[in-house]
Design a protein around this nucleic acid. Structure first.
Lengths: 144, 144
DNA sequence: TATTGTTATACTCTATAACTATA
DNA sequence: TATAGTTATAGAGTATAACAATA
């Protein structure tokens, strides 16, 4: 009979591997020409979490401010992101998606969902419940 | 009462978001100085799936052969990866981890597992079972 | 003086095209 | 001729340091 800690370690490894593989696959599904991974990540972040300052984006993506500035410049040049100044603090610049940027985020989201929805569709109600529960558990783990 | 398809879409979105967030967090946990994300990914791949040719690595990581060649050069310069020629086909070059590379992969794996194991440890047996089942389901979805 | 963003500069990652060696 | 890998060159991402504007 395996030790309790062995089971834990095994489960952690299984969850980790599943998350990495699924993420990789979903990223492939949502691949969009003319946008690098970095740029796509920022578009998805703005689409999901709404407008953000340059510093917030840099911190979340864990890149330097100059690096994020460059990425935002590229997205702005493509007409996907718009800069507006914060009325309450002149130092701050708010980044938000343009209509084209929102549309692109929606398209990418739809592609990802399409693949995953098709994969989930044939599952039994019990299986689906397990997935739902696991997703909720992970969200709880990640919560501050 | 929501339509069946709405539930599906919602579940797919929840699973997708959970996988992305967990992956991001796990990547941060395994951050190791002096190795870029790309380099670390290749080390983990070789550690997990064993030796591979340059072409196989490039295809799996979805980068060009020259790009992967450069990454492998960097890893070889750091003493983490070793090139050996395929005895059965002189064109091919097999990449494999050195002892130092294997050790580094183990360290990264341990760091990731440490965080996730700690997060799973306080869960009830039912919750753990849901995670295990979800991980197995995802592996099945990804299977060819 | 501290914070937010930007510019300057240098190094790494990436791709396409051209080249070498082997099948 | 086709395939696996490498080298050459150019464009994009990244970081640190220095600068500008606002709090």
């Amino acid at each position: 009979m395996p030790k309790e800690s062995d089971e834990l370690t095994r489960l952690a490894a299984d969850v980790r591997v599943a998350a990495f593989r699924l993420t990789r696959r979903l990223r492939i599904e949502s691949d969009i020409d003319d946008l690098t991974d970095t740029q796509m990540t920022v578009v998805m972040r703005l689409g999901h979490a709404g407008p953000a300052t340059l510093g917030q984006l840099a911190e979340f993506e864990r890149v330097s401010a100059p690096s994020m500035n460059r990425t935002v410049n590229a997205l702005a040049a493509k007409g996907l992101v718009r800069r507006t100044s914060d009325p309450s603090d002149g130092r701050r610049v708010i980044m938000e998606l343009t209509d084209a940027g929102s549309a692109l985020a929606s398209t990418a989201r739809a592609r990802r969902s399409a693949w995953l929805t098709a994969a989930i569709e044939p599952l039994t109600p019990d299986d689906r419940a397990a997935l739902a529960r696991a997703a909720a558990l992970i969200e709880r783990m990640l919560a501050p």
